[in-house]
Nucleic acid binder design. Structure first.
Lengths: 204, 204
DNA sequence: CACTCTAGTTCGAACGCTCATTCTATGTTA
DNA sequence: TAACATAGAATGAGCGTTCGAACTAGAGTG
C-alpha cells in the first residue's frame, strides 16, 4: 500500500492516476479472491482501498473494466513463467520448479475461486469471454514459442495437442482442488512433474 | 413443462408436493444455466416456473436448497453412466460411447457455466463446499467400484490416481471449452477415447 | 504578495433498481 | 371447518452507478 509522495505535485497527473488505479486494483483483487465477482461489491472495494465510489468510477468506467485489468495481471504472471524457462541452463530443473509452483498456485483456494468465477462469467458474458479467450490465445502462443526455443520438437498439430493437454492438466487440477481438499499435494506435484517432462520429452 | 393433472386432487399431497418441487427444479436449472447462480433470481425462477415466490418458498427453505437439489440431479446423471458401464457386454464400445457423450456434455456452454459457478461458490461458501465434496466422494467411490467390476485391476493407490486423472481430464476439458471455443470437438473426442482406454488398460 | 480563476481530485449522499425472503390474504380441497 | 396450496404485495437490505459539491494546487493578474 506504500506509494510515492504525490502531494508535492511535480508528478505528471497521468502517473498519479496510474498509482491510484493500481491502488484500486490491489484492493479489488483481494476482495474478488475473498468474496467473488458478485460478492465483491463496489462498496467493499471502496472500504478496502480507502476510496469513495465516485473516486473509483473516476478511474474505471465500470466494474467489468476492473476485472479486465485483473485478468491482464494474471496473464503477465504466467508469461513470467515462460520467460524463466526460456532463459535457464537447467531445463529439467527449472521445469520441475515451475510445475511445483504452478501446482501450488493452482491449489490456492482464493485464487481458484476467482479464476473459476471469471470462467463462469466468460461462459455467459460475451465481453468477458472475449477477454479470457484472447488471454488464452496469447498464453498458448507464448508457450509454444517457449517450448520450441528450449528444444521441444513437434509438428504443429502435435504441439497444439501438447499445449492443450498441459493447459487441461492444470485447469483440471484447479477444480480437483475444490472438489477434493484432501488431495495429497506432494504426490500430485511429483506426478505432475513427471508427466510434464515425459509429455515434452525432456530428459530428467 | 408438461405435468400430470394435479387438480383432481386424488393424489396424496406428498406426491403433489414432489411434482411441484420438480417443476421448480426444472425451471431453476434452466435459469441457472442461462444466467448463473447469482443472475438467476427468485423472480426469474418464478416467471420460468409460473409460480409465485411465496409458493416456491413453500417447497424450498432458501435458494441454496435449490442448488443442493440440482447438484444431486447432476450426481445421479453421472452415476447412470457408471451403471451403463457395469452392465454392458461390449466394454470398449460402451466406454467410447460414454466418453463421447461425456465430452459433448462437458463442452456444452450452459452446463459448463453452471458447474463452474457452483465450483466457484464451493471454493468460498462452506455449505456448498460440503455438498460438492460429498458428491465428489460418492462419484469417485462409485467409479472405482465400477472399474473393478468391469475387470480393471489396480492396487488402491494406483486406482485413486487413475480416477483422479480421469476426473481432472474432464474438468480440464470443461475450462478449455470456455477458454478456447474453437476447439476441434471431433479430435478431442478421439483423443479422449484413446487415452481413457489406454489409461484403464482396456483392449480396443 | 494577495486575489481570483480553473481544472483536477476526492467525497459521500442519493438514485433507481433488484435481490432474497416474509407476510397476509385468498382459494381450494377433504 | 380445518388444513393445505397459492398468490402477490411488502420489506429491508444491498447493488452499481451518478451527481453535485467541497477541497486542493497551480497559473494568471494586479
Amino acid at each position: 500500500m506504500q506509494q510515492q509522495d504525490l502531494s508535492r505535485g511535480e508528478m505528471p497527473h497521468t502517473a498519479r492516476a496510474e498509482a491510484r488505479r493500481a491502488q484500486v486494483l490491489e484492493a479489488a483483487l483481494a476482495c474478488f479472491r475473498e468474496h467473488g465477482f458478485h460478492g465483491a461489491s463496489i462498496a467493499r472495494i471502496c472500504k478496502a482501498s480507502g476510496m469513495s465510489p465516485g473516486h473509483i468510477y473516476h478511474y474505471f468506467r465500470n466494474k467489468e473494466e476492473i476485472i479486465a485489468a485483473i485478468v491482464e495481471q494474471d496473464v503477465a504472471r504466467i508469461l513470467d513463467f515462460h520467460d524463466r524457462m526460456r532463459s535457464t541452463d537447467d531445463l529439467a530443473g527449472t521445469m520441475r520448479e515451475c510445475v511445483a509452483e504452478g501446482v501450488r498456485d493452482t491449489l490456492d483456494a482464493g485464487a481458484s475461486a476467482l479464476k473459476l468465477e471469471i470462467l463462469a462469467e466468460a461462459a455467459r458474458n460475451p465481453s468477458i469471454a472475449k477477454l479470457v479467450q484472447a488471454a488464452d490465445r496469447r498464453l498458448r502462443t507464448s508457450l509454444i514459442e517457449t517450448l520450441r526455443s528450449v528444444g521441444v520438437t513437434r509438428d504443429d498439430d502435435e504441439m497444439d495437442e501438447c499445449v492443450d493437454t498441459l493447459c487441461a492438466m492444470f485447469d483440471g487440477l484447479m477444480t480437483r482442488g475444490v472438489r477434493n481438499p484432501d488431495l495429497d499435494v506432494a504426490a500430485v506435484t511429483r506426478r505432475y512433474q513427471e508427466r510434464v517432462l515425459e509429455l515434452l520429452g525432456i530428459a530428467p
